[in-house]
Design a protein around this nucleic acid. Structure first.
Lengths: 195, 195
DNA sequence: ATTATCTATAGATCTATAGATAATGC
DNA sequence: ATTATCTATAGATCTATAGATAATGC
């Protein structure tokens, strides 16, 4: 089904608002920035912003969601018989690559994710987490990962550690993030592989 | 030095605002609640709230800070020759005990902590993290913990995983949190102890 | 004719600040 | 006399909603 004129227009407006929002978030900070500035840059009324995004959090969640889509792609590109280490390095690497040039937004975006996790039940929204958890589960079933935790909890713990490493790295930007994350993956491996 | 009348009054007002804020946060949600309601319950003007707390985040940071103080006490009560497992169980247990009856606030409070980590350099604000990191460092020096990461990063990673477990648990309140966190401590042990 | 998308705007709420009051220091 | 704490309030910004416009479906 080909998208009509109206749908195309709506998506174009939404995209303009999204990009303007990220620009203003970075420039003025998420909490202190004015939505008026976002609307002005996107060349629509302020109310149009609310039509597309109920809150600033919704913009941050879309950003996090795009990061997750990158992660999903990377997970799908793994060979069927991947090892636990390969899986962990893929997760850490994909998140690192995505957030590397978005440091000003990492903490706010992940904060929004935590609030979303606590309140909404968005099973389908965070597909990549489920995918990651699914792959952990398969490794558990093969006896290649410990069974102490539900795979969802393990996935979320690994992801939270990855995010906190990136957020901490924001303050020491000269350090090599990729190397850091690769080492982290090895540490996760120690905790998650069976004896 | 005995506190004067003015100081006593200020601290009492601040405490009333703090408690009113937590009450309203829980009732209406941090993002959607009105500061007017907080001020009304605390029986001061709305501007008095801003005098004591520049933002809602400041209230959440004080809450997180109180959690950290509980953690600090628990860490100080450990024997000098504690094991890595004892240390990890203490951290997980203390955070679990503190947040157990504050589930509605965990995600917002930890989100505020992440933003604070990314922006301010509050070395002295989060004393307990430093204390935890110091104890990890001593274990590293004794050869009882791996040396792959700076102790601050290890401390933050463990704490972030603990927090994410608590935040995830918010959605399945019937599960036993303490048991969950104890198992988590054992998993951390696997990753942080030397071979 | 109906509906989705967006604008204009009224009313709610926030933030910044000038000023009041009472405690403190000299 | 000076200063810390708090109030009153003006102006800024947000949020909710009535209405305009143009695309869509019949």
């Amino acid at each position: 089904m080909v998208p009509g004129v109206r749908e195309k227009q709506r998506e174009e407006t939404r995209r303009r608002l999204y990009e303007a929002a990220l620009e203003v978030f970075r420039r003025d900070g998420v909490q202190t920035c004015r939505i008026d500035d976002i609307a002005r840059i996107a060349e629509v009324s302020r109310a149009a912003f609310y039509f597309h995004f109920p809150t600033k959090d919704a913009v941050l969640l879309q950003l996090a969601h795009e990061g997750e889509e990158q992660l999903l792609k990377a997970l799908e590109a793994l060979p069927a018989d991947h090892t636990l280490l390969q899986l962990l390095e893929t997760v850490a690497g994909a998140q690192g690559t995505f957030w590397k040039d978005k440091r000003e937004l990492v903490a706010d975006a992940y904060g929004a994710v935590l609030r979303a996790i606590a309140t909404v039940s968005d099973a389908e929204y965070f597909q990549s987490r489920n995918r990651f958890a699914g792959q952990l589960k398969r490794l558990q079933d093969k006896g290649l990962a410990i069974r102490d935790f539900a795979p969802e909890v393990m996935a979320e713990s690994v992801l939270s550690s990855v995010m906190i490493i990136i957020i901490g790295w924001v303050r020491t930007p000269e350090a090599p993030l990729e190397q850091h994350l690769k080492k982290a993956a090895q540490v996760f491996l120690r905790s998650l592989k069976p004896d």
